[in-house]
Nucleic acid binder design. Structure first.
Lengths: 204, 204
DNA sequence: TCATGCACTGTATAAAAGAACACTGTTCAT
DNA sequence: ATGAACAGTGTTCTTTTATACAGTGCATGA
């Protein structure tokens, strides 16, 4: 679809946009490719727009955008915490061990939500099809019966299913090898699971 | 951290950037807030940079970028196909039913990979912890024994585990209720599963 | 009460950047 | 052989845009 030269221009636009956050001006394109004339850059941009891969806003500086990014849903950045820290939420915010960036539609969260994610350790939720190493996305919202929640129970935080029976709340693993966790004192829900991301290969 | 007014300016930057793909100029900020002076906009931007939420490139037009987006991994747009179409790859590219945008690190794919995704129907892979409705991310690459693959077998495409025994390839479901699929004629691997995204709530 | 940060007004200037027009030469399908 | 798309050169003009500097008024904590 694109000629080789046009692809080279697109690659330059992409790499500059990634590095600097802004689009190069026509003169910057000219300099990068060593054109003697600014018009060479302009006509390439015109061709790229005609082919539909970029869009231009007339009269504005650096006003190019990639068509595919335009059609993209808004992206949300979700901090990933490793070990579920005891007392999470009490003594400040722990350091994220990474970040998950995903479009809001695929994760079913809203742009302004306060989502966070946890890296799952162990197989206590295996029967809910949550595997060791999975990243589960949580949202801080009211929990219903049988939701999977991150909860602080007697001083420790864990990912389990919340069960409410006869007005009593307790936590249940999704693995027959693990017993129910009935709180001696407190049971504080810190988030409700809304999604999950898994990937094979290198762990991060 | 930000004052109310500064937050309003940030919100304006964000919404303009989302709508147009480019940052507003100082004059556009001035007009939007009804400032009599351009300097009001400039000093807000200076304050925002001082607080670390944006970064400016001196001397360049519309050269602002959000600090959080700078720190973000590159995003890849993965087309999601619904029904796994028979003959996928033969008669052109089928229409995606949606798109998954996710950072390359979280999905473990490279920026230039030709990844695609499939929406899972049924519970034939449930013992591999792949649920009905999950979106599985595939990459077109050589498959090894016991990889989970999308494969064309005797004219139909399906998601199963690839098993190679005694130089013979066949497909195995991860559910005892389903029989092995031994190919009568052809077994063509169309992709290897590299990741998975699940979310609760509304289905899209 | 004094400095500091905030939120502006008002004016001016120079640089950055888009846009327009007239060209040349090549390749490639009809 | 001919038009159309491609890939440029060379020049000029105007608009857009950032930047600089001199102020005002208000709140707030030291």
């Amino acid at each position: 679809m694109l000629t080789q030269r046009q692809q080279e221009v697109m690659d330059f636009l992409r790499s500059e946009h990634r590095k600097t956050g802004i689009m190069p001006s026509t003169r910057e394109i000219q300099q990068h490719f060593g054109f003697s004339s600014q018009t060479a850059a302009v006509s390439h941009l015109t061709a790229l727009e005609k082919k539909g891969v970029i869009q231009k806003l007339a009269g504005k500086a650096r006003a190019l955008m990639f068509t595919d990014e335009m059609e993209r849903e808004p992206i949300i950045d979700i901090p990933i915490y490793g070990q579920i820290p005891a007392g999470f939420g009490d003594d400040g915010v722990p350091e994220p061990e990474g970040q998950l960036s995903v479009d809001v539609r695929s994760m079913g969260v809203s742009t302004h939500s306060t989502a966070y994610a946890l890296r799952v350790r162990g197989d206590s939720m295996i029967d809910a099809h949550i595997m060791d190493g999975d990243v589960v996305v949580m949202e801080d919202k009211p929990a219903n019966n049988r939701d999977i929640v991150a909860a602080l129970i007697d001083g420790e935080t864990t990912l389990k299913r919340l069960v409410i029976e006869k007005r009593k709340k307790f936590l249940r693993a999704e693995n027959a090898d693990y017993p129910d966790l009935v709180p001696l004192q407190e049971l504080l829900v810190q988030g409700v699971m809304v999604g999950l991301v898994r990937h094979f290969g290198r762990s991060w």
